[in-house]
Design a protein around this nucleic acid. Structure first.
Length: 550
RNA sequence: GCGCCAGUAGCUCAGCAGGAUAGAGCAGCAGCCUUCUAAGCUGCGGGUCAGGGGUUCGAAUCCCUUCUGGCGUGCCA
């Protein structure tokens, strides 16, 4: 990476000059192009420890730096910045490296194979996935893809909450719908029950295959049977929705199975050993306040059943037991009260709570015609993930979900996502890719596309727009590392928009295919071909398609 | 009340973990298709970075505080 190369040069010079460099300094791309291609603050940062004025320090560093031919110009500017203007040949060499890397460009072993578990969605299996789940799916999956590319060993998991109250209510709701179908008068549908149409559909399906036989079972067997049926159906439904969204999980972990395997008891015994449990009001409590929570939490309710917390904690324990050293939970906006107790339990069991990392996704508001679309889960009036994908398509949905940072509310404009014009950033970016494809097609038709691009063509790429595109391409490896470290996939969207803008402008300003000389055309085609490849890499990370034509 | 998150152009949002004159898209106005896709490009206007204090060479960015909005504060999940 260019920044690293410059940073290394600087360190070299500092050592040669005997300048102490305890403090870290940076090399960055200035936001003002008049400040060079790259800029370093090293003279200002190191001034104090060397007891020199920033400017005089900078002057001696620059004198030494100028011996290197990679730079066209090096300037001292402002309060002591060192600004670097790179020689075109330097950019051209960088570009050639990017080309040679091909599809492997911007892969690295940066993550050192660290096992990271990404848990996301983990919605109740009691209905279709909603749009917050869709956001979580896009976010989690893209983060996964980026982390994998830069050398982590990430894994995606979905925790199935297939035990307990909600599932019981689901079974009861199904039973009522079934009885309805068989002509029973059931009166008003209970408030707490699941009102969604999908329950009726399940009932119809079951009625068609099993009919009255369901009611010949004992009540206990019947409820179990209904539960199993509904869970299997709904899980399949959720899995399908996710597949349509190009999100595939590496593991689906069932709460019910965990309970059967005894992990829950294991967790309880650890908490008990840590001497942080007690009994009160017929319930068993976890003294989480000992570890920073603001109130103690119930582990076992007075009716003898566990709270949601205990099996979930057991699940987290299995993550550690399976060798994951970083556990990332991607939660919806309504769970942050839950974190202190999870952390407290980690501490109590002797694990470093820093292993546990929580990312909160804020809520999603749908807008249509400038009006907020109101949703009500209780009344079964929700816009589901499937609805959204059917309406705006996978590409637009994934793009818009990724384009916002996690902890910001997301206003999803349905009309905008549907627009096939310049107002819609998804199309803007995909169009840039399609444009390149069509230029390449034309070049092949006009027979100026070479069998292979010769390295000598590089010197033809010297327009400022061309060098800027190369610089942008060269940013990607570092960007992916930053995205992985800071868990910020939204930066992919910013990147692809900037790159796309550069391509559209380049297209408008320069003739590619019928440029004055064949060599010049080929040089530009070479640049575009590589840009296309880099764009495809980014689109793939975002899980959206890279269309050849639009 | 307490806790978490947010507040940047008319709107939707970036801002590279402290850098130089705060950016982009949309909306508004004015232009550009006999030429590789006009789903594009060019130009113009638009800001008390919610307010106030602090830290330092330097703050939208870090600390404190006030205000506004969202969410949470179950023996629900």
């Amino acid at each position: 990476m260019i920044k690293d190369i410059i940073h290394d040069h600087l360190i070299n010079c500092l050592q040669k000059l005997g300048i102490s460099h305890e403090k870290d300094f940076t090399v960055e791309i200035p936001n003002n192009t008049e400040h060079g291609d790259y800029s370093s603050n090293c003279a200002m940062v190191l001034a104090k420890e060397n007891k020199k004025a920033p400017k005089s320090l900078a002057e001696s560093i620059i004198k030494e730096l100028k011996k290197n031919k990679n730079y066209k110009k090096i300037e001292l500017a402002g309060p002591g910045f060192i600004n670097f203007y790179l020689a075109p040949s330097f950019f051209q060499r960088i570009f050639w490296d990017i080309r040679e890397s091909g599809e492997n460009y911007a892969t690295s072993d940066f993550g050192l194979g660290e096992k990271v578990l990404l848990e996301f969605i983990s919605a109740n299996p009691t209905g279709p996935l909603n749009i917050v789940s869709a956001r979580a799916a896009a976010f989690g999956d893209t983060l996964y893809r980026v982390m994998k590319r830069v050398g982590f060993a990430p894994s995606r998991e979905f925790y199935i909450n297939d035990f307990g109250n909600q599932v019981d209510i689901l079974a009861e709701s199904l039973e009522l719908r079934l009885r309805e179908l068989q002509g029973d008068v059931i009166g008003e549908f209970p408030y707490e029950a699941y009102h969604g149409e999908y329950v009726k559909h399940l009932a119809q399906k079951l009625n068609a295959t099993e009919g009255v036989r369901v009611f010949m079972m004992t009540e206990k067997d019947r409820i179990e049977h209904l539960k199993e049926f509904a869970l299997a159906e709904l899980l399949e439904m959720q899995r399908n929705s996710l597949e349509n969204f190009d999100v595939v999980f590496d593991g689906w972990v069932s709460e019910k199975t965990l309970r059967a395997e005894g992990v829950v008891e294991e967790v309880l015994s650890y908490l008990y050993e840590a001497d942080c449990t007690y009994e009160k009001d017929d319930a068993i409590w976890f003294a989480s306040t000992k570890y920073g929570d603001d109130k103690d939490r119930v582990l076992m309710k007075s009716d003898g059943s566990f709270t949601y917390f205990v099996p979930d904690l057991a699940y987290h324990l299995t993550k550690i037991q399976r060798g994951f050293s970083t556990l990332i939970d991607i939660f919806g906006p309504d769970h942050h009260g839950y974190i202190p107790r999870l952390r407290a339990a980690f501490s109590a069991m002797g694990y470093d709570e820093k292993m546990l990392e929580i990312i909160f996704l804020q809520q999603v508001n749908l807008f249509e015609s400038g009006e907020r679309v109101k949703m009500s889960k209780r009344a079964g009036k929700i816009v589901t993930m499937d609805d959204l994908i059917n309406e705006v398509g996978k590409d637009a949905a994934r793009y818009f979900f990724i384009a916002r940072k996690a902890n910001a509310h997301l206003n999803f404009d349905l009309e905008l996502a549907l627009k096939q014009n310049n107002e819609n950033p998804v199309y803007y970016c995909q169009y840039a890719h399609a444009r390149i494809c069509s230029i390449i097609k034309k070049a092949k038709k006009d027979k100026i596309w070479p069998k292979s691009f010769k390295q000598e063509l590089l010197s033809k790429l010297n327009k400022s727009e061309e060098l800027a595109i190369i610089q942008k391409l060269s940013d990607l490896p570092e960007l992916l590392m930053l995205i992985a470290i800071h868990r910020e996939p939204h930066r992919l969207a910013t990147y692809i928009e900037e790159l796309s803008a550069m391509i559209h402008k380049y297209y408008a300003r320069y003739q590619i295919v019928s440029a004055k000389s064949k060599e010049l055309s080929q040089a530009r085609l070479m640049l575009l071909e590589t840009t296309k490849q880099v764009m495809a890499i980014v689109f793939n990370l975002m899980g959206i398609s890279a269309p050849e034509k639009m």
